[in-house]
Amino acid sequence: MAQDEIKKVFVIGGSSGSFDVLLYLLARLQPLDAAAIVIVLHRKSGYDTALIEVFSYRTGITVKEVDEKEPMLPGFIYVAPANYHLLIEKDYTFSLDVSERINYSRPSIDVCFETAAEAFGQKLFGILLSGSNIDGTHGLETIRQFGGTTIVQNPQTAESPFMPQQAINNGAADYVLEPEGIARFINGE
């Protein structure tokens, strides 16, 4: 099954100030081969399919909004839909949930990171970008607990440094990198 071919999963969480960083990263990505990327971005609720178009414009890799129960496949960039929590099951399928907001957010970065940590263990790389929220720190801690690796955007390069700084202060960052370094990391350069 194609799902078994997934060697690496990058989950990227971003809040205020992360949109431009995401555009920068997307434009620099090499083809993913055996990897998949999942993006959880805090945003206003609504039917903003425009986001997928904007992302797609930046990269040759297929970007799609997650459908519920969809199996995660290598070579794709998945985006969490607005107003749902995104969870990853141990059979590498996505599920959605409209339960309470976590850290004032739905989708919550923590929810996605925590479930991904259990599903993917060492294959998982959690990346936390700019934001002014505490979301993501607990998720990164969980990723490390299950053997995954964590990367946090250097707060000095973040439009809103609070969220990455929070993760660093809690010791949740294996690497602190500027956007260029994050792009290199994902590309395995």
Partner: peptide
């Protein structure tokens, strides 16, 4: 029920 969701609950 979906596993990850029920576990969170």
């Amino acid at each position: 029920y979906t596993k990850a969701s029920i576990k969170r609950r």
